[in-house]
Design a protein around this nucleic acid. Structure first.
Lengths: 173, 173
DNA sequence: CGCGACGTTGATTTGCCTCAACGATTGTGG
DNA sequence: CCACAATCGTTGAGGCAAATCAACGTCGCG
């Protein structure tokens, strides 16, 4: 157990990053899964009109990454940047795959992680069709209770998929 | 390898099922992951107005299940039923978890399966916000090229999240 | 201080829904 | 084998949630 943690620590890179700093750009091939020890990151994509759609926030204790690019090895469609100054661990994909063979438990850990994320995105993809903006806002609040007060409204709007104008009107009845 | 396949075959249940037959109801605790050898299944939920939202079709060679219920052990929110007469293998969750310990490879297989599904549902959840109905229809066609011709329009509508009336109008310009 | 990001408010437009009516197809029981 | 019901696709009129566009005030920051 202790030995395994040492092996892990040997391959991750620790980093302090500042607000607005980019960790991944659209078109990049992603080589790291990122664990957030403090602060907050986000991943999002941008459509042809420049609109942002936020896929995920990653406050303290969460993982974040461009799963598409990590899994396929193709250039990704996401940006990842820093919402609040953060301390992160970057886990290189190639080293992780080497470790999978040495530490079987790691396979279990990331299988469970992927399964839980899958459960969430399956339900989100249906909620995004069937729920009205008000209800998506409430879901957002219960998913990110620590963020709702310190995040600019604009970013909440970009997560639930409405314009900032509409969110503003909605919140003032 | 051969021995491992025997172990797997020892715990799965083979079944032939007929169109419209239910394999899971809302509120059920799901005990099986299902592999479709032939035919087609689907999973969907129903909102308070009786509207169906289809989460997934599973034609030949696909897995289907209620991940939420399988992962958490709680009663699920999905129905699973048969779209076209099918032959399926039902893999019991508890037996699978036993096998995980005996066959490490199985962990890898389902980790990769979950990762690929995750990639899809992450992108679908954002597409459901940012794409118009027409574009969601096109995505549907490329995901299920074998189904698009033999599926009632109503079910396509329930997958892309529009009313059957609107889909009909849309397809006739 | 001045500039850029953000939130607000109003007028107008639009994508999609609702409800209703109707024909065609399927399937089912007598 | 027919009759009738159920399911499906189509079309039209009207309505609503959310987008668009524009203008304006506020604040934090270089």
């Amino acid at each position: 157990m202790e030995e395994e943690i040492e092996q892990l620590l040997a391959i991750v890179k620790f980093k302090r990053v500042k607000k607005k700093q980019y960790l991944l750009l659209e078109g990049d091939i992603s080589r790291y899964a990122i664990f957030v020890a403090s602060g907050c990151l986000r991943s999002y994509c941008v459509d042809e009109n420049g609109f942002q759609y936020i896929q995920q926030f990653a406050p303290e204790g969460w993982w974040i990454g461009d799963m598409y690019s990590l899994v396929t090895g193709n250039p990704g469609h996401l940006y990842i940047d820093v919402v609040f100054d953060a301390e992160i661990f970057m886990l290189p994909k190639v080293e992780l795959h080497r470790l999978y063979k040495e530490i079987p438990k790691l396979n279990v850990y990331f299988r469970v992680l992927a399964e839980n994320a899958l459960v969430y995105y399956q339900s989100r993809s249906m909620e995004n069709l069937r729920l009205a903006a008000k209800e998506r806002y409430e879901k957002f609040c219960s998913r990110y209770p620590t963020l709702i007060d310190c995040l600019p409204q604009k970013q909440v709007a970009a997560y639930i998929g409405v314009t900032p104008e509409f969110l503003s009107k909605m919140l003032n009845q």
